[in-house]
Amino acid sequence: MRSRYWAVVARGMAMGAADVVPGVSGGTIAFITGIYRELLDSLSSIGPQTLTLLYRRGIAAAWQSINGGFLLALFSGILLSIFSLATLISYLLASYPIVVWSFFFGLILASTVPILRQIPRRSPSVFVCLALGGLLAVAVSEMRPAQIPATPLTLFLSGALAISAMILPGISGAFILLMIGVYPRVLAAVHELQLFNLFCFASGAAAGLMLFSRLLSWLMHRYVSRTLAFLAGVLLGSLKIVWPWKLPAGEVAAGGDKVAPLMSNTLPTTYASATGEQTYLVPALAAAVAASALVLVVDYLGEKYRSVHP
């Protein structure tokens, strides 16, 4: 059992590393590593009944009912990764952005293979859900930075929206906050310790996490084929967000005096001619292939383990 929790810590560290990269969701890593459904079920089990169980039967019963060991191991890994790997990943993203984005491109692309294989039944509605998931991710990628006032209500709703996006594979919560113009305000609240604003945002995140995890958990149990197809579509559509070669297509104010560049995808040859910079094509392809191989090997070992320990 202890060895399992160490494995969950490692998955949490991978999720934390992904969350550091803007545009990549930790939910994607949870899906790839096979803990997504358990994460949703564990989160959805937390509610008023937990307090009732705590009062009537004690800490041990309440802890077991919410799968506390799993959640503690996972979130410990996430926090450990954010605090220990954030500097390294930020450096790699600033120094070798094309290679890093290529790695995540291969990671996400290959992760759709085991997800699609898990779909138990094919039907027209399944293909419709696959298309809808792809369209949602593409629509998110086409969002342009806006600016909304930082009121208690908007901060609450922004927290709920961001955390819902964060647990949805393929969509980054930080990316959503940036697009609606709240990201700079949240960072300012953290740096300046604006406790009331942080409370409003955190309350919204907690409410969104509890509600959206319940919805996704219910869908995964009741409509597994359509839900898996929709999530696979979201992952495929999110490839547009993580495409490595991009060119600026204008600028839009994203809040305060900050200006966010609008980026458009382009071919490596066009990127090289427009910027005069290297395309890093060979390292990028190597990173994408390595990431794809990593996902497929993890999936193969997971299938082999499940066949031996059903």
Rank of each mutant, 00 (worst) to 15 (best):
F196E: 06
S111G: 07
I176A: 03
G69A: 08
F212E: 06
G173M: 07
L74N: 09
V128G: 02
E192C: 04
A189G: 14
T50V: 14
I163D: 12
S76R: 02
F156I: 15
F196A: 15
I176E: 06
S76F: 15
A287Y: 01
A249R: 09
L198Q: 05
A260C: 03
A162G: 06
V140A: 11
V20G: 03
R222V: 02
S125D: 05
M179K: 15
S172F: 06
A30P: 11
L88S: 10
L187G: 06
F70P: 05
L247T: 02
T112W: 01
T28N: 08
L235P: 05
R144I: 11
M1H: 11
H221N: 14
Y280P: 00
M143D: 02
G134F: 08
V140N: 04
G134P: 08
M179T: 04
I66P: 10
A293D: 00
L132A: 15
G233S: 06
A188K: 13
T112Y: 01
G255S: 11
S307W: 01
R122A: 08
G16F: 07
C129K: 01
A206T: 14
F103K: 00
T227M: 13
K246G: 03
A7T: 09
L161G: 13
L193Q: 10
F31M: 15
T87M: 05
A254W: 02
L88V: 12
A61D: 12
T50A: 15
S25T: 02
P261D: 03
W101F: 14
A30H: 09
W243A: 08
L187R: 05
W101Q: 12
I46M: 15
S141I: 01
F196M: 07
I167T: 08
G106E: 00
V128A: 14
G27E: 11
T87F: 12
A260D: 02
G133K: 12
A10Y: 01
A272N: 03
T87Y: 13
L216N: 07
L178A: 07
A232K: 01
A229H: 07
V20T: 10
V289K: 00
V295E: 00
F83R: 14
S65N: 11
I171A: 04
V138S: 03
L281A: 13
M1Y: 09
L216H: 11
S217F: 09
